[in-house]
Simulated assay, not measured.
Amino acid sequence: MFNKYYEVLTNLPAYSHNIFRKDYLPWLIKQCLGWGTFSYALLAFNFILQLISVFSSFNANPLLAIITFIGGNLSVACVIGISNRSGIQGWAGLISALCIAWAAYLAGNFATVCEQLGYIIFLDIFCILDPQWNSTMEAAKIESKKEWLGYGLFFLITWLACFNIFSLTSDPRVFLDSLTLAMAITGSLMELNRKREQYYIWTLASIFTIALWSQTMLAGDGNFALIFSYSVFLLNDFYAFFSVKGWFRTI
C-alpha cells in the first residue's frame, strides 16, 4: 500500500534530480500540451469564471481576491492534470493547496486547512519528486459488500473524529467542514489503494465543498472563486462517469 512512498523517500537524492535538471521548466510546459478538447475547454471556462470572481470581490478584499483567483485556477489545472496523467499536477496542486489553505484559515474553515496541507504532504510533493507517479496506475474495482462496508465504516469513524476535534475550535461551519475533510481522507485512502470507485467519493466531496464555500461566502468570509472551481471539479467528475474515454470506460 505504501510501497511508492517508501521508494521515493529511500531514494530521495535520485528523485530530487527530477527537479534540478536543466530541461525541467521546458518539460513542465510540455506537460500542458496534448490534452483533450474537453480538458482545455474546462480550463478556459474556469478561467472566465475566476475573472468574474476576482473583479466582483477585489474592492472588498483585494488580497483574498487575488489569492483565491490563483488557487481557483491552479486547483482546476491540477485536477485536469491528474485526469490527463500530467506531471504538472504536482506544482499546480501544491500552490493551489497553499492558496486554498490560506483562504480557509481566514474564513475559520480549519478542517479544510488540514485537508489542503494533507494533499501537499502526501500527494503533491511526491508527484513533484516522481513525474511518473500516476503514469503506471492501474485501478481496481471494489469486489465485495464487505469491502464497501469497510470504507463506509472508515468514513463514519473519520467524520466523527474530525467533527469532535474541530468542534473544539472556533470553526463556524464545523459540520460541513469536518464532513469534507472526512470525505477527502476516505477518497485519498481509496486512491492509495487504486480503487476506481473513489470517483463516487470525490463527486460527493465536490458537492459538499460547494455547499461549504457557499455558506462561507454568504457569511462574508469568502467569494465565488472556490465555488466556481469546485463546480468545475464536478463537471470533470461527470465526464469521468459518462465519457466514452472517461474513468469507468477505460479501466
Results as ranks from 00 to 15, higher is better:
E191C: 14
D177L: 06
N46F: 08
V54M: 00
I120L: 02
A101V: 02
W247I: 15
I251S: 12
M1S: 12
L51C: 15
S170Y: 10
C114P: 00
G150N: 10
A182Q: 00
P172I: 01
L74S: 08
L160E: 02
T180W: 09
A111F: 07
W27M: 06
L12R: 09
A225V: 09
Y230G: 03
C162E: 01
L156G: 04
K22P: 08
F20W: 10
I29A: 09
L181I: 01
T136C: 06
G34Q: 09
F55T: 15
W133G: 00
L9A: 10
M190Q: 08
L226E: 07
F2I: 12
Y119A: 03
Y105E: 04
L106K: 14
A184M: 13
H17L: 10
L212H: 14
P172T: 05
L94I: 08
G90E: 02
I48F: 15
I121S: 00
F69K: 01
L51S: 07
E191L: 15
G36R: 03
L176I: 06
N109D: 09
L9T: 13
A161W: 07
G87M: 08
W247E: 12
S75Q: 13
I185N: 00
E147N: 06
S214M: 11
N11M: 00
F238R: 08
T68D: 02
E143Q: 13
T203Y: 11
S231E: 08
N236W: 11
A211W: 14
R85I: 09
T186S: 14
A97L: 00
A97H: 03
Y199H: 11
K146R: 15
N236C: 11
A240K: 10
G220K: 01
N61H: 12
L181T: 04
L25A: 11
M190E: 05
Q89S: 13
N223E: 11
D124G: 01
F155H: 10
Q89K: 04
A140H: 12
N236M: 11
T169R: 08
L176F: 15
G152C: 12
I207Q: 08
A104F: 07
N61D: 15
T68S: 13
M137R: 11
E191N: 14
S135L: 05
G187W: 03
L94H: 01
T158E: 04
N109W: 02
I88F: 14
S144M: 12
R85P: 03
Q198I: 06
G246K: 09
W102Y: 15
A182Y: 05
R194C: 05
I251G: 10
P172Q: 04
I95P: 01
K22H: 15
F126N: 00
C32S: 14
